[in-house]
Amino acid sequence: MNSTSCFRNLCAGFFLMALISGCSEEVSRPLLQVGEKAVPFTLELTGGQQSQLEHYAGKGLVITFMSSWCPCSNESLPLMKQAHATHKDAPVAFLMVGIQDSRSNFENFVKKWNVPFPAGYDKNDHIAKDYGVSSPPTTFFIDKNGIVKRAFYGNIAKKPDEFQQWVKEIIE
Protein backbone atom coordinates (compact mmCIF):
# COMPACT_ATOMS: atom_id res chain seq x y z
CA MET A 1 0.00 0.00 0.00
CA ASN A 2 1.56 3.34 -1.03
CA SER A 3 1.45 6.46 1.13
CA THR A 4 -1.38 8.09 -0.85
CA SER A 5 -3.75 5.18 -0.37
CA CYS A 6 -2.67 4.89 3.27
CA PHE A 7 -3.56 8.59 3.76
CA ARG A 8 -6.89 8.07 2.01
CA ASN A 9 -7.78 5.02 4.11
CA LEU A 10 -6.83 6.75 7.35
CA CYS A 11 -9.02 9.75 6.48
CA ALA A 12 -11.93 7.49 5.52
CA GLY A 13 -11.64 5.56 8.80
CA PHE A 14 -11.61 8.65 10.96
CA PHE A 15 -14.46 10.32 9.07
CA LEU A 16 -16.55 7.18 9.53
CA MET A 17 -15.82 7.25 13.26
CA ALA A 18 -16.71 10.94 13.42
CA LEU A 19 -19.95 10.28 11.59
CA ILE A 20 -20.90 7.50 14.00
CA SER A 21 -20.06 9.57 17.08
CA GLY A 22 -21.94 12.56 15.62
CA CYS A 23 -25.12 10.50 15.36
CA SER A 24 -25.49 10.47 19.13
CA GLU A 25 -25.63 14.26 19.42
CA GLU A 26 -29.00 15.71 20.25
CA VAL A 27 -30.68 18.81 18.94
CA SER A 28 -29.73 21.70 21.20
CA ARG A 29 -32.21 23.70 23.24
CA PRO A 30 -32.06 27.37 24.25
CA LEU A 31 -29.67 28.16 27.09
CA LEU A 32 -30.76 29.24 30.52
CA GLN A 33 -30.36 32.92 31.34
CA VAL A 34 -30.44 34.79 34.63
CA GLY A 35 -33.88 36.42 34.97
CA GLU A 36 -35.59 33.72 32.92
CA LYS A 37 -37.61 30.68 33.93
CA ALA A 38 -35.48 27.70 34.91
CA VAL A 39 -35.39 24.91 32.34
CA PRO A 40 -37.45 21.86 33.41
CA PHE A 41 -35.40 18.72 34.09
CA THR A 42 -35.72 15.16 35.26
CA LEU A 43 -32.81 13.87 37.29
CA GLU A 44 -32.34 10.34 38.57
CA LEU A 45 -31.17 10.61 42.15
CA THR A 46 -28.56 8.35 43.72
CA GLY A 47 -31.28 6.64 45.74
CA GLY A 48 -33.15 5.68 42.58
CA GLN A 49 -35.98 8.25 42.84
CA GLN A 50 -36.54 10.93 40.25
CA SER A 51 -36.28 14.64 40.86
CA GLN A 52 -38.00 17.19 38.66
CA LEU A 53 -38.06 20.97 38.68
CA GLU A 54 -41.82 20.93 39.37
CA HIS A 55 -41.16 19.21 42.71
CA TYR A 56 -39.61 22.43 43.97
CA ALA A 57 -42.48 24.74 42.98
CA GLY A 58 -43.28 27.28 45.70
CA LYS A 59 -39.85 27.21 47.28
CA GLY A 60 -36.35 28.31 46.45
CA LEU A 61 -33.90 25.92 44.85
CA VAL A 62 -30.11 25.95 44.95
CA ILE A 63 -28.95 23.67 42.17
CA THR A 64 -25.24 22.98 41.94
CA PHE A 65 -23.37 21.15 39.18
CA MET A 66 -20.31 19.33 40.49
CA SER A 67 -17.74 16.66 39.58
CA SER A 68 -15.87 14.30 41.88
CA TRP A 69 -12.48 15.12 40.33
CA CYS A 70 -12.91 18.88 40.53
CA PRO A 71 -10.94 20.51 43.40
CA CYS A 72 -13.33 23.48 43.55
CA SER A 73 -16.36 21.16 43.84
CA ASN A 74 -14.71 19.43 46.77
CA GLU A 75 -13.92 22.76 48.40
CA SER A 76 -17.46 24.07 47.85
CA LEU A 77 -19.26 21.14 49.43
CA PRO A 78 -18.67 21.90 53.14
CA LEU A 79 -20.21 25.36 52.71
CA MET A 80 -23.10 23.87 50.78
CA LYS A 81 -23.72 21.36 53.58
CA GLN A 82 -23.50 24.10 56.16
CA ALA A 83 -26.03 26.26 54.29
CA HIS A 84 -28.33 23.27 53.96
CA ALA A 85 -28.18 22.72 57.74
CA THR A 86 -28.75 26.43 58.44
CA HIS A 87 -31.81 26.62 56.19
CA LYS A 88 -33.18 23.18 57.01
CA ASP A 89 -36.58 24.54 58.01
CA ALA A 90 -36.73 27.33 55.41
CA PRO A 91 -38.60 27.02 52.11
CA VAL A 92 -35.48 26.26 50.12
CA ALA A 93 -34.12 23.02 48.70
CA PHE A 94 -30.62 22.03 47.64
CA LEU A 95 -29.87 19.73 44.73
CA MET A 96 -26.55 18.47 43.43
CA VAL A 97 -26.11 17.37 39.82
CA GLY A 98 -23.07 15.29 38.85
CA ILE A 99 -21.58 16.27 35.50
CA GLN A 100 -18.50 15.48 33.37
CA ASP A 101 -17.94 12.43 35.50
CA SER A 102 -18.58 8.70 35.60
CA ARG A 103 -21.63 7.55 37.53
CA SER A 104 -19.63 5.41 39.95
CA ASN A 105 -17.14 8.18 40.74
CA PHE A 106 -19.95 10.63 41.34
CA GLU A 107 -21.82 8.22 43.60
CA ASN A 108 -18.64 7.61 45.61
CA PHE A 109 -18.18 11.36 45.87
CA VAL A 110 -21.70 11.76 47.28
CA LYS A 111 -21.01 8.97 49.80
CA LYS A 112 -17.59 10.32 50.74
CA TRP A 113 -19.00 13.75 51.55
CA ASN A 114 -22.15 12.31 53.11
CA VAL A 115 -24.20 14.81 51.13
CA PRO A 116 -27.35 15.52 53.14
CA PHE A 117 -29.48 16.76 50.24
CA PRO A 118 -30.62 15.06 47.00
CA ALA A 119 -27.94 14.36 44.42
CA GLY A 120 -28.15 12.75 41.01
CA TYR A 121 -25.97 11.88 38.05
CA ASP A 122 -26.64 13.81 34.85
CA LYS A 123 -26.13 11.17 32.17
CA ASN A 124 -24.49 12.68 29.07
CA ASP A 125 -24.66 16.09 30.76
CA HIS A 126 -28.10 16.81 29.32
CA ILE A 127 -29.18 19.10 32.15
CA ALA A 128 -25.80 20.83 32.16
CA LYS A 129 -26.19 21.58 28.44
CA ASP A 130 -29.67 23.06 28.97
CA TYR A 131 -28.33 25.22 31.78
CA GLY A 132 -25.28 26.28 29.75
CA VAL A 133 -22.85 24.82 32.28
CA SER A 134 -19.38 24.43 30.79
CA SER A 135 -17.37 23.63 33.92
CA PRO A 136 -18.04 22.51 37.48
CA PRO A 137 -18.81 23.83 39.98
CA THR A 138 -21.62 26.06 38.77
CA THR A 139 -24.49 26.99 41.06
CA PHE A 140 -27.90 28.45 40.20
CA PHE A 141 -30.26 30.16 42.64
CA ILE A 142 -33.87 29.71 41.57
CA ASP A 143 -36.70 31.50 43.41
CA LYS A 144 -40.10 30.11 44.41
CA ASN A 145 -41.57 31.22 41.05
CA GLY A 146 -38.98 29.20 39.14
CA ILE A 147 -37.02 32.28 38.01
CA VAL A 148 -33.23 32.06 37.95
CA LYS A 149 -32.14 34.88 40.24
CA ARG A 150 -28.43 34.29 40.08
CA ALA A 151 -25.73 32.05 38.63
CA PHE A 152 -22.37 31.55 40.28
CA TYR A 153 -19.41 30.01 38.48
CA GLY A 154 -16.58 28.46 40.46
CA ASN A 155 -15.63 27.80 44.02
CA ILE A 156 -18.44 29.09 46.21
CA ALA A 157 -16.32 28.60 49.33
CA LYS A 158 -14.50 31.78 48.26
CA LYS A 159 -17.74 33.77 48.70
CA PRO A 160 -19.30 32.45 51.92
CA ASP A 161 -21.11 35.67 52.88
CA GLU A 162 -22.48 36.26 49.40
CA PHE A 163 -23.62 32.65 49.25
CA GLN A 164 -25.68 33.00 52.44
CA GLN A 165 -27.11 36.26 51.08
CA TRP A 166 -28.05 34.65 47.75
CA VAL A 167 -29.81 31.78 49.52
CA LYS A 168 -31.76 34.29 51.61
CA GLU A 169 -32.74 36.17 48.42
CA ILE A 170 -34.51 33.16 46.97
CA ILE A 171 -36.25 32.35 50.26
CA GLU A 172 -37.80 35.83 50.52
Binding site: S134, S135, P137, N155
Partner: peptide, 10 residues
Protein backbone atom coordinates in the same frame (compact mmCIF):
# COMPACT_ATOMS: atom_id res chain seq x y z
CA UNK B 1 -11.11 23.45 26.31
CA UNK B 2 -13.42 23.40 29.28
CA UNK B 3 -11.76 25.90 31.61
CA UNK B 4 -11.21 25.50 35.31
CA UNK B 5 -12.91 28.40 37.02
CA UNK B 6 -10.20 30.46 38.68
CA UNK B 7 -11.40 33.14 41.13
CA UNK B 8 -10.90 35.81 38.46
CA UNK B 9 -12.62 33.76 35.77
CA UNK B 10 -15.50 33.23 38.21
Amino acid sequence: YSPCITPMLS
